[in-house]
Amino acid sequence: MWVDAAVIGIKLVAVVGVLLMTVPIMVWVERRGSALIQDRLGPNRVGPAGLLQPFVDAIKLLIKENLIPAGVDKLLFVLAPTIALVVALSLFIAVPFAVDDGLELVETPIDGFIVAPDLNIGILYIFAIASLAVYSIVLAGWGSNNKYALLGGIRASAQTISYRLAMTLSVVGVIMAAGSLHLTQVVTSQSGVWLGFLPRWNFLIQPLGGIIFIVAAFAETNRLPFDLAEADSELVAGYHTEYSSMNFAAFFMSKYIHMVTSAALITVLFFGGWQIPWISLPGGWMGAGLSLGVFSAKVVFFLWLFVWVRWTLPRFRFDQLMALGWKIMLPLAVLNFLWVGVAMASGILT
């Protein structure tokens, strides 16, 4: 019994540790990456190639005064960043990140490289928890007693409704193809080839759904071109205008953790998770390590995509995002799952 708990504990500590560590690394990648795109150097003074810069920034935020302005709703003001961080951290526990065929740790089965092993409604869990994230933004906007923050909160709620329907519908195709809400089964259903030569990745079978999901992931992570809730040139800093110190850091960290989770979800749902096209993985610890590497490589690619897009595109307008969500992405998502249905019924996709 206690060994089971220990195994889950180890997994939890490892996942949360890695997640929290990706934040400073991603901040560094973002700053150096944007510098690369913008023909400048970026931070390069603290540590080798500036790698320690995010840590120094974090220490700076920690020792700053945690200012709570007069006139704010204190409970909501403090609750909002907490929700943001809790939601961001609890998402990843349902994401499987490597292959496991009966590996054991101290004579106890690992039950898959996933924190919550028997979560047969993984997709549902992730979408349900992720929808809570908008509360943090809306509450922060409301509780801050600041007009810019309020506008940011309103924008976030409108934005969430607009893209989330399309996002969820685009995943319906994946669920149909896999026949399960279990994320590990979604990954295993993407092994092998389709039509004789194509890797059986959902992105190749249902590219429309994949594109819609990726676009919606940008809205999910509140990044350009959909960073309307914090649009710095319009709303100063949007919903977190009034936040400072670790309260601000909580929002900041949750944004980057959301990025990692979104990249992992894109990988799992549409890009075959840890599968390598045309090659079947070896078993045992070697297969686990290899699959972990493949999975990480795919996630890193999508993380870079997030950075790349952010520093290239202008920002959508609030009404344009809603139009995009309702008038374009939603019908296309329906079209996508119709296609999957037709393909399955006609036997193109078995």
Binding site: S233, T312, L313, P314, R315
Partner: peptide
């Protein structure tokens, strides 16, 4: 103008 509309990179160019 570009930064106001959200595109930050043209600034540096």
């Amino acid at each position: 103008h570009a930064v106001d509309i959200g595109a930050i990179t043209p600034f540096f160019y």
